[in-house]
């Protein structure tokens, strides 16, 4: 029944691999940048807070596809030569998803009482050391369910790299569909794969949410 899928399985799975790679880079970069963006959003220094706030609010109001296009157009201009879709997509995703992760981390940071941070400072720890050993680790643990949920969203978003021709999972399925016209099988298959991965992810997030609620230590 699903012959079009089995017949092209390695090609399609290759696309899933590209999707996974893109998601990996997008997530690592997005989370790391998000940690910094969150810190900037609670900063008292206006010269840090305002630019980052504008950046966050700007990017959260425009479609991701547009951001993907924008970087695809801008990067050749900046580096002086044409660019592959993969690196361009990675940059777009990191910059875009960092705004969402940034807001999650910001919420996490705000759960940490000022005096906890003061306690660290009063032992001679600097701002950055405090952020690294106290603020960020605590926020990370507290926001883990939201971080997982957002990671699932990012994973789904990678499919939009389709528009700059990246040979990821969805694009490969549509290429096969052009040849074999077995749309139900192919897109059904893509849907099922995404469903399984994202569903498992949301269960994991739910698990940590329950764990966190019961423990309620951190």
């Amino acid at each position: 029944m699903f012959d079009a899928v089995w017949g092209n399985l390695s090609y399609l799975m290759g696309g899933l691999w590209v999707t996974a790679k893109l998601a990996f880079f997008a997530l690592t970069g997005g989370i790391f940048l998000g940690i910094l963006v969150g810190l900037a959003r609670i900063s008292k220094r206006k010269w840090i807070y305002y630019p980052i706030t504008i950046y966050v609010n700007f990017l959260r109001n425009i479609p991701l596809i547009l951001v993907i296009f924008w970087f695809y157009f801008v990067m050749p201009i900046i580096i002086g030569r044409s660019i592959d879709p993969f690196p361009s997509a990675v940059v777009s995703f990191i910059v875009f998803e960092a705004t969402y992760f940034g807001e999650i981390f910001r919420a996490g940071y705000q759960t940490i009482s000022t005096d906890l941070v003061n306690a660290s400072y009063s032992t001679g720890m600097t701002y950055f050391k405090t952020a690294r050993y106290i603020t960020v680790p605590i926020a990370f643990r507290r926001m883990l369910p939201s971080l997982i949920t957002q990671s699932i969203v990012t994973f789904q978003d990678t499919s939009l790299a389709f528009v700059i021709g990246l040979p990821e999972f969805v694009r490969r399925a549509s290429i096969v569909d052009n040849l074999e016209v077995a749309s139900i099988q192919l897109f059904g298959f893509v849907g099922i794969v995404f469903f399984i991965i994202c569903f498992i992810g949301s269960r994991i997030s739910r698990h940590y949410e329950e764990k966190g609620r019961k423990a309620n230590i951190l």
């Binding site: 699932i152 789904q156 939009l160 399925a173 749309s183 897109f187 995404f194 469903f195 994202c198």
Partner: peptide, 22 residues
């Protein structure tokens, strides 16, 4: 759960290309 866990682009492709075949 089905509509949340499948990317929008995949859903649109499905309805547009596979939908009529149904």
């Amino acid at each position: 759960e089905v509509f949340r866990n499948i990317p929008l682009i995949v859903q649109l492709f499905f309805w547009y290309y596979a939908g009529p075949m149904l």
